[in-house]
Amino acid sequence: MTVLPKDIPGDSLKVTVGTANGKPGDTVTVPVTFADVAKMKNVGTCNFYLGYDASLLEVVSVDAGPIVKNAAVNFSSSASNGTISFLFLDNTITDELITADGVFANIKFKLKSVTAKTTTPVTFKDGGAFGDGTMSKIASVTKTNGSVTIDP
């Protein structure tokens, strides 16, 4: 049996954390987006972790974005102690894959008090994996961190 590389060099799934701005007490939304989904033969499963400074940001909610089908079954998240974990699994293993680019999740943060303008990162942590529509590992994932700026 011969195994051929399935990824064209330079191609990767792009996962990007967005940015937001606000004043202390505001609730802002930071999107997590996927790009080049079709090039990577869709997404059938993924789990990953984001870190944030809990002294500056309070997670209000984490909701599935419009590219997630049947989110009540296929999407899960949790947030505590400065870490947000995400889990997606197409429970049907074929019919509810992520097949389009767009917003995977929206994180709502309540901004805490600061004395001066502060930009705090929302960054990928170690761990996690992504699988394509056949549940094979997506070897190349380009992750881009985001941030939230609090301006009193």
Rank of each mutant, 00 (worst) to 15 (best):
M1T: 08
M1V: 13
V3S: 10
V3A: 10
P5D: 08
K6I: 14
K6N: 12
D7R: 14
D7P: 11
I8H: 07
I8L: 12
I8F: 13
I8E: 13
P9T: 13
P9S: 09
P9H: 12
G10Y: 07
D11V: 12
D11S: 13
S12I: 12
S12A: 11
S12R: 12
S12V: 11
L13A: 11
K14R: 11
K14T: 11
K14P: 11
V15D: 14
V15C: 14
V15S: 08
T16R: 12
T16C: 10
V17L: 13
V17A: 11
G18D: 13
G18K: 12
T19H: 11
T19E: 14
T19F: 10
T19P: 11
A20D: 10
A20W: 06
N21W: 12
N21C: 13
N21L: 11
N21Q: 12
N21F: 08
G22L: 07
G22H: 13
G22A: 10
K23P: 10
P24S: 11
P24C: 14
G25V: 13
D26H: 12
V28T: 11
V28A: 13
T29I: 10
V30I: 13
V30E: 11
V30N: 09
V30Y: 10
P31N: 07
P31S: 11
T33L: 12
T33N: 10
A35S: 10
D36C: 05
D36H: 11
D36L: 12
D36F: 14
V37Y: 05
A38Q: 11
K39L: 13
K39D: 11
K39W: 14
M40F: 05
K41I: 11
N42Q: 12
V43L: 07
G44A: 03
G44R: 01
G44L: 14
C46Q: 04
C46H: 08
C46R: 03
C46N: 08
N47Y: 01
F48G: 12
F48C: 08
Y49N: 01
Y49R: 01
Y49K: 00
L50K: 05
L50S: 07
G51C: 08
Y52V: 09
D53P: 13
D53S: 11
D53L: 09
A54F: 13
A54E: 14
S55R: 09
S55H: 13
L56G: 12
L57I: 12
V59F: 11
V59W: 09
V59T: 08
V59H: 08
V60H: 12
S61E: 11
V62G: 09
V62P: 08
A64Q: 07
G65F: 13
P66N: 09
P66K: 11
I67N: 09
V68N: 07
V68Q: 11
K69Y: 10
K69T: 10
K69S: 11
N70L: 04
A71L: 07
A71S: 11
A72W: 11
V73M: 06
N74P: 01
N74E: 00
N74I: 01
N74H: 00
N74Y: 03
F75M: 07
S76I: 02
S77G: 09
S78L: 15
S78P: 10
S80E: 01
S80G: 08
S80W: 15
S80D: 05
S80I: 15
N81D: 14
G82S: 15
T83L: 04
T83R: 15
T83H: 14
T83P: 07
T83W: 15
T83G: 15
T83F: 15
T83K: 15
I84D: 02
S85T: 04
S85G: 01
F86T: 00
F86S: 03
F86N: 05
L87R: 00
L87Q: 01
L87M: 03
L87W: 03
F88I: 04
F88Q: 00
L89F: 02
L89V: 00
L89H: 02
L89R: 02
D90Q: 00
N91I: 11
N91Y: 15
N91G: 01
N91D: 15
N91S: 06
T92Q: 00
T92P: 06
I93L: 09
T94H: 03
T94L: 08
T94P: 04
D95L: 02
E96W: 02
I98E: 00
I98F: 04
T99A: 05
T99M: 12
A100E: 06
A100T: 08
A100H: 09
A100M: 03
D101R: 05
G102Y: 00
G102K: 01
G102D: 06
V103L: 03
V103E: 00
V103G: 05
F104R: 00
F104T: 03
A105I: 03
A105D: 00
N106V: 06
I107R: 01
I107E: 01
K108D: 00
K108W: 02
K108R: 06
K108M: 07
F109D: 00
K110F: 02
L111Y: 03
L111S: 04
K112D: 02
K112N: 03
K112M: 05
K112L: 03
K112V: 04
S113F: 03
S113N: 05
S113P: 05
S113Y: 06
S113W: 06
V114D: 07
V114Q: 09
V114A: 07
V114T: 07
T115H: 07
A116M: 05
A116Y: 04
A116W: 03
A116V: 06
T118M: 07
T119G: 05
T120G: 06
T120I: 11
T120K: 14
T120Q: 03
P121S: 08
P121E: 05
P121D: 05
P121W: 03
V122R: 00
V122S: 06
V122Y: 02
T123D: 06
F124T: 02
F124V: 04
F124P: 01
K125A: 01
K125C: 02
D126H: 15
G127R: 15
G127T: 02
G128N: 00
G128Y: 02
A129D: 00
A129F: 00
F130G: 00
F130K: 00
G131Q: 00
G131P: 01
D132Q: 04
G133S: 03
T134N: 04
T134L: 04
M135V: 03
M135C: 00
M135N: 01
S136I: 04
S136N: 06
K137G: 00
I138L: 02
I138S: 03
I138D: 00
I138Q: 03
A139V: 06
A139E: 02
S140F: 05
S140Y: 05
T142P: 05
T142A: 08
T142R: 08
T142E: 04
K143F: 01
K143Y: 01
T144I: 07
T144E: 06
T144K: 09
T144A: 06
N145I: 04
N145P: 05
N145F: 07
N145D: 05
S147F: 06
S147T: 06
V148S: 07
V148D: 01
V148A: 08
T149G: 15
I150R: 14
I150L: 14
D151G: 15
D151K: 14
D151N: 15
P152L: 14
P152D: 04
